[in-house]
């Protein structure tokens, strides 16, 4: 029981502190919301056939998962490490698996709120509300692990300010070229091929299965996403340094 109490207390603290600071929540909720509303209303993106909101909703849901897990976890953990907060937690009885469990719990809680807001707004904008439960949960879990792992990988090796910059740069690159804002199929040939192998493209395709009208993800997509969900946490665990960078 004490393990559950510790994990819940830690997760609640992480959420409360994130809400109090605000900036990360703005990125996590504000940007996906902006993309959804703006490009649903203003038809400027080459979104192919179909109504913009139906094409955008899965992408934006994927973007929300990506920002909560990679940017949210990555930047906060990076600064916690940089300022020695992790070192202090390291001499409390909170074990590392419990800290990671708490971060995962806090991230999923954040995502639940984000996705609820985004899907309600999508409905208001006329989204066709196609929804499949198993792919939805699968996309959230695999996406959170893959991008959370990427955030932890960056947080565990870079110094605080460098981690902040790189996290935001990776976010922007994935947003532009990872098939988030522009579907991979619409990107120029080689870029599109790379986008298919990136976790962002795979996550969007998986979200397409969950929230789109047609099955967009083949087995290959799920395999790519699952592979990233193994590679990034393993790489993070292998390289993570809990002490501040000297």
């Amino acid at each position: 029981m004490s393990a559950v109490r510790a994990v819940v207390a830690q997760a609640r603290t992480e959420v409360v502190l994130a809400v109090r600071q605000g900036e990360q929540l703005l990125v996590a909720l504000g940007i996906p919301l902006l993309v959804l509303v703006f490009f649903s209303v203003v038809d400027v993106l080459p979104l192919g056939s179909g109504r913009p909101v139906d094409v955008l909703t899965p992408s934006v849901a994927a973007l929300a998962v990506l920002s909560a897990s990679m940017v949210g976890v990555g930047i906060s953990t990076g600064f916690e490490r940089h300022y020695g907060v992790l070192k202090r937690l390291g001499v409390s009885p909170l074990t590392r698996p419990r800290l990671l469990g708490a971060k995962a719990l806090a991230t999923v809680a954040t995502e639940a709120v984000q996705l609820a807001v985004l899907l309600v707004v999508a409905l208001v904008l006329g989204w066709d509300a196609s929804f499949s439960f198993v792919p939805f949960v699968g996309a959230i879990v695999l996406g959170t692990v893959a991008f959370g792992g990427l955030g932890m990988l960056l947080a565990g090796v870079l110094s605080g300010p460098a981690n902040l910059a790189v996290n935001n740069a990776v976010y922007l690159l994935l947003l532009l070229f990872g098939g988030v804002a522009v579907p991979a199929a619409e990107l120029p040939g080689p870029v599109g091929a790379v986008a298919d192998l990136l976790p962002s493209g795979a996550l969007i395709a998986a979200m397409g299965d969950a929230l789109g009208s047609a099955d967009t993800a083949g087995a290959g997509t799920w395999l790519v996403l699952a592979a990233w969900a193994v590679v990034t946490p393993v790489a993070a665990a292998a390289t993570f340094s809990w002490a501040p960078r000297d």
């Binding site: 207390a9 603290t13 600071q21 020695g84 009885p93």
Partner: peptide, 24 residues
């Protein structure tokens, strides 16, 4: 610890309760 920092926006009352929750 020497020159230890905490979460920058945590309140003392939250910090002691959090650390209490970590202890058996």
């Amino acid at each position: 610890l020497q020159s230890c920092r905490l979460y920058s926006v945590i309140r003392p009352v939250e910090a002691v309760r959090l650390f209490a929750a970590h202890h058996p």
